[in-house]
Simulated assay, not measured.
Amino acid sequence: KLRSHNLKFHKEVQIDKSDVYILPSTSLNQDVIDLKAQLNKIDEKYQIVLKALFFEGMTQQEASEELDIPLGTIKSRLKIGLRELKKFYD
């Protein structure tokens, strides 16, 4: 019981040795950081779905009902839209 207590209450967090908060700045392309600007460069049918899902916080089912688009089409447009956006970030 004593060992269990010690394990629960005597843990040290070693922030100085953690690399969780270290973000490599070389991996970010500063020219394409603005997602909304890049979103305007793809086909409108993909824009509508991505905006509903990511900027309005809808689930795929909610977007399907709100936009009156079949759920399978929402999923396809999401996948294709993300693939199109990825081209700007490569």
Rank of each mutant, 00 (worst) to 15 (best):
Y46V: 10
I48S: 04
T59G: 06
S25I: 14
N29T: 00
D43Y: 08
A37E: 15
S76F: 11
E84G: 04
N29F: 02
H5A: 06
K41Q: 14
K41S: 04
K75N: 09
Y21T: 00
L7C: 00
G72A: 08
R83K: 14
L7I: 01
L7W: 04
L50M: 07
D34M: 13
V20N: 00
R3C: 04
F54P: 12
A37H: 10
Q30Y: 09
L71A: 12
A52V: 07
Y21E: 01
F55C: 02
K11Q: 10
I69D: 06
D90V: 15
H5E: 01
Q38W: 01
L7A: 02
E65K: 15
N6G: 05
K36C: 07
R83M: 14
T59S: 11
E12C: 01
K86D: 11
S27D: 09
K86S: 14
K8R: 08
G72H: 09
A52S: 06
S64G: 07
Y21C: 13
E62M: 01
N40S: 15
L7E: 10
E84Y: 10
S4T: 14
E84D: 14
I15G: 08
L2I: 12
N40F: 13
H10E: 02
Q60I: 08
Y89V: 15
G81Q: 06
H5L: 05
K8D: 01
K8Y: 02
L35M: 12
K1E: 13
G57I: 04
T73G: 07
I80G: 03
K86Q: 09
H5Y: 01
I48Y: 06
K1R: 10
K86T: 08
E56R: 06
E56H: 02
S25V: 13
S27V: 06
G81S: 06
